[in-house]
Amino acid sequence: MDVAWTMHTGFGSWNPALWLAALLIALVVALAIRALGRKDYRKNSAQTKPFISGNEEPAHGGGHIPASNLYWGFLESMKAYYERLVPLHTGMLGDYLVWFLGVLAAVLVIGLVI
């Protein structure tokens, strides 16, 4: 098979057009399987209410969940790391420049040694 638009990196390769074509065909297969199933349900009935173990559903707009909650498990597990890292982000340009120069110097030293 010889297909245009293949990107070669010298180590590997990938062809986005070919993947998209395969994805579209796979989507058709998935749609065909889906079409075998039952389509109906009772709209606007109790079965369309969210399952919350019998609890009352909170009023819409009554609560606000910040996006950072998405990563709660990660932030909690890495708390020790973030407790040190967050205070370093002072918001002052001078501090960031010092960090940038420090890391650049370290990379240069490591690069020269290796």
Binding site: L36, G37, R38, K39, D40, Y41, R42, N44, Q47, T48, K49, P50
Partner: peptide, 12 residues
């Protein structure tokens, strides 16, 4: 069996 069950789309 799942194919014979209702395909419910929640109100929310």
């Amino acid at each position: 069996k799942l194919m014979t069950k209702q395909n419910i789309v929640p109100a929310n």
